[in-house]
């Protein structure tokens, strides 16, 4: 009679002898699939964090161009009760962002033709007098570098605020800009408003 041997998970060792476990040769030790996926996910996470940190601290040309728009936005924006010193600082800031001359084509604000830096700052200073508050924001940047030292930017500019007479301002324009790099700084060389709706 032969009794069936049940698989108890233990190796057959009637004498109870202590045997040394010999690792299988040739094949590497097996890692369960779940653990493998975990390691892959952790690896991917670390790579993503690394890429994120790289882009956060790496000052690309695109970032430098965008910075000029941020500075322009800060310079143009006006808060209620702005004092004369702040205004002077902001006007100077606007002036420092433009080349010696800049081609302007902004029909909605009666600005067209080539303007000098002084003319632009003068216009900005006069314009602020009629405004109680103003916010200029830029959205949807499309930046291209057609040649060395030139950046062409297509974006949407949004103006919100109110005049000193209490009239609300809520405008949006598509803008095409050309910036030129002079002494490692991107300067506005041309600003043109694109007509989205033609009356």
């Amino acid at each position: 009679m032969v009794n069936p041997v049940r698989n108890t998970g233990k190796s057959f060792n009637p004498a109870g002898r202590v045997t040394k476990k010999i690792p299988p040769t040739g094949k590497p030790p097996m890692i369960p699939d779940r653990r493998k996926i975990k390691y892959v996910l952790i690896g991917l996470g670390l790579i993503a964090i690394g890429i994120g940190i790289f882009f956060m601290f790496f000052q690309s040309e695109e970032k430098r161009v965008k910075k000029q728009f941020r500075l322009l936005s800060e310079g143009v924006s006006k808060e209620t009760g702005e004092n004369i010193f702040t205004m002077d600082q902001k006007i100077k800031k606007i002036g420092s962002l433009f080349n010696d001359t800049c081609d302007m084509a902004i029909p909605a604000h009666s600005l067209s033709g080539q303007m000098t830096r002084e003319e632009i700052t003068g216009y900005a200073a006069r314009g602020r007098l009629h405004l109680a508050e103003l916010q200029l924001t830029f959205h949807d940047f499309m930046i291209a570098f057609p040649q060395e030292g030139e950046a062409r930017v297509r974006l949407t500019a949004r103006l919100t605020g109110r005049t000193t007479t209490g009239e609300a301002i809520n405008e949006a324009h598509e803008i095409d800009c050309l910036l030129k790099k002079t002494e490692k700084k991107w300067m506005f060389n041309r600003i043109e408003v694109i007509e989205v709706l033609k009356k």
């Binding site: 959205h139 949807d140 499309m142 803008i175 989205v196």
Partner: peptide, 10 residues
């Protein structure tokens, strides 16, 4: 209607 992108529309 879009402007330069889709963030601000009419």
């Amino acid at each position: 209607i879009r402007f330069a992108g889709q963030r601000i529309t009419l």
